[in-house]
Simulated scan of single mutants.
Amino acid sequence: MPDDVDEPSSAQRRVLVLGGTRWLGRAVAARHVEQGAEVVCLARGAGGVVAAGAHLVVGDRDRGGAYDALEGDWDEVVDVTWMPRHASSALDELADRASHWTFVSSVSAQRTEGAPIGADEDDELVPEDAAGEEYGGAKAWIEREARERLGERLAIVRPGLIGGPGDESDRFGYWVGRLALAGEGPVLVPARDQPTQVIDVRDLTAFLVDQAPARADVVNAVGAELTLHALIAIARQLTGHTGELILASDAELEAVGVGHWSGPRALPLTLPAALASHAQRSSARYRAAGGQHRPLRETLEAALADERARGLDRSSASRLSRADELAAIDSLASRA
Rank of each mutant, 00 (worst) to 15 (best):
Y67S: 04
T270D: 03
G243A: 05
G19C: 14
Y67F: 15
S334F: 00
E34F: 01
T227E: 12
Q110E: 01
G64L: 13
V33Q: 03
A276D: 14
A30R: 14
E133P: 00
G311T: 12
L70H: 03
E244I: 05
A273C: 09
R31D: 11
Y67D: 13
Y286S: 06
D120V: 03
V40C: 10
G163A: 10
I199P: 09
S283K: 03
W101M: 05
R215M: 15
S277G: 10
G177Q: 06
G114E: 03
L320C: 07
G240T: 13
A87I: 06
L304C: 06
V39Q: 13
Y286W: 04
V126E: 13
D75F: 03
E7W: 08
G64M: 05
W261S: 12
P2A: 10
A317W: 11
V107D: 11
G47F: 08
A119W: 12
V80I: 08
T299E: 07
P159I: 02
D123S: 11
D6K: 12
H229M: 07
L271Q: 00
R265I: 08
L18H: 02
V40W: 05
W74R: 07
R281T: 00
D122I: 04
L247R: 05
G19V: 03
R97E: 07
T239V: 12
T102H: 06
E244T: 14
D203T: 02
S282I: 06
R192L: 11
T112L: 11
R319C: 00
R215W: 07
R14P: 07
Q197C: 06
S283F: 02
V104R: 02
L271D: 09
G114T: 13
Q194F: 02
V80T: 13
P84E: 05
A29W: 04
V5M: 04
T112C: 14
R314Y: 08
E34I: 01
S108G: 06
H55I: 11
T299K: 10
T81E: 08
H278I: 13
S88R: 14
N220K: 00
R281F: 01
L326M: 13
R236F: 06
G173F: 00
A138T: 06
L226I: 12
P159R: 05
V78N: 04
A66G: 10
G114N: 06
A214C: 00
E254Q: 15
L247T: 08
A37K: 14
G65D: 01
P272K: 07
E93C: 07
F207R: 08
R144S: 13
P165G: 07
D122C: 05
H260W: 05
F172N: 00
W82V: 14
Y135K: 02
L188V: 01
L300I: 14
H241W: 04
V57D: 01
A146G: 10
A90Y: 01
V17T: 04
S99L: 15
P272G: 04
T81L: 03
L267F: 07
S262I: 12
I156Y: 00
P272F: 01
G166S: 10
V104E: 03
R158V: 10
D4P: 03
H32L: 15
A224V: 14
H293I: 02
V58Y: 02
S10R: 14
A98D: 06
A317G: 13
D3S: 15
G243I: 03
G45M: 02
L231N: 08
R236N: 08
Y67C: 13
Q35N: 14
V104A: 01
